[in-house]
Simulated assay, not measured.
Amino acid sequence: MNAMPPVHPDPLPYAHLLPLRAPAAIDLVVVHCTELPDLATARMYGERVLYDSGTGNSGHYYIDRDGSIHQYVAAERTAHHVRGINPRSLGIELVNSGRYPHWLDSRHQAMDEPYAQAQVDALIALLRALPAQLPALRWIAGHEELDTEQVPASDDPARRVPRKRDPGPHFPWAEVLAAIPLQRLPERP
C-alpha cells in the first residue's frame, strides 16, 4: 500500500455546498492543467461563484510546479471540473500556463510549458495512494479526451479551436501510466 503524500487542505469557501457522493461512485481521475500562470491565480479562479448553487469551477487537487499538493475539494464532494463526468470523477489540476492568457485565440493554441519533474512525481505519488481511499478508482483520462468541443476562435469567429486542450502535448502519459495502478479510460463511442 502506498502512503498518501503530504497534502495541504485548503477547501474552497463553497466546498460544503458541492453535492456529496459515495467513494464507491468514483472510478475516474481526470488530469487537467490550470492554463493559468500560478497557483494563486488558479485559487482565485476556483473561488469564483458561477452557479445558482453558490459554487464554481474547480478540481479536487492542485499540484504546483514545486510538487506541493493542495486539496480544494474533498473527494466525497462532486467538483465542477469536466462537463458530464463530474459525479464519477476526481479532478487533478497541474499548475501550467497552457494557452494563457489567449485560451481561444487561434494564433495562440500551442501549449509550450513542460511539466516540472517535481510536479509529475507528486502526481504519481498521489495516484498511487488514492486507490486505497477510493476502491473503485480504476481509470484515468485527460480533460481534452472528455471535452472535445470546438468553439469559435476569439480572434476570428469563423475559425474553430478546441475548448479544452489540457493537460496538453507535454504531459508525460507514458511515464505516469507506467508508474500507477490506473488504466487509460477507453475511448467513448
Rank of each mutant, 00 (worst) to 15 (best):
V49A: 11
S53V: 06
S53Q: 11
G54M: 09
G54E: 13
T55L: 13
G59Q: 08
H60G: 05
Y62R: 02
D64W: 00
D64L: 04
D64R: 00
D64V: 06
R65A: 11
D66N: 09
D66M: 07
S68D: 13
S68G: 14
I69L: 14
Q71I: 04
Y72A: 00
V73Y: 00
A74K: 09
E76F: 11
E76W: 10
E76K: 09
R77T: 04
H80A: 12
H80G: 09
H80Q: 14
R83I: 12
N86V: 10
R88S: 10
R88D: 05
S89N: 06
G91A: 08
G91F: 01
G91W: 01
G91K: 00
G91P: 05
I92Q: 00
L94E: 00
V95W: 04
S97K: 14
S97I: 15
G98Q: 02
G98P: 03
R99I: 07
R99A: 11
P101C: 13
P101I: 12
D105M: 04
S106P: 06
S106A: 12
R107Q: 15
R107Y: 04
Q109L: 11
Q109A: 04
A110G: 08
M111W: 03
M111F: 02
M111N: 00
M111C: 07
E113W: 11
E113G: 11
P114V: 06
A116I: 02
A116Q: 07
Q117S: 14
Q117N: 14
A118W: 08
Q119F: 09
V120I: 15
V120D: 02
D121L: 08
A125G: 06
A125H: 03
A129S: 03
L130V: 11
L130M: 12
L130N: 00
P131Y: 08
Q133Y: 12
Q133M: 09
L134Y: 11
P135I: 06
P135A: 09
A136D: 07
W139L: 07
W139C: 03
I140K: 00
I140D: 01
E144S: 00
E144Q: 07
E145I: 01
E145V: 03
D147C: 06
T148R: 15
T148E: 14
E149F: 13
E149T: 14
E149G: 09
P152R: 01
P152K: 01
P152C: 04
A153T: 03
A153G: 06
A153Q: 02
A153I: 05
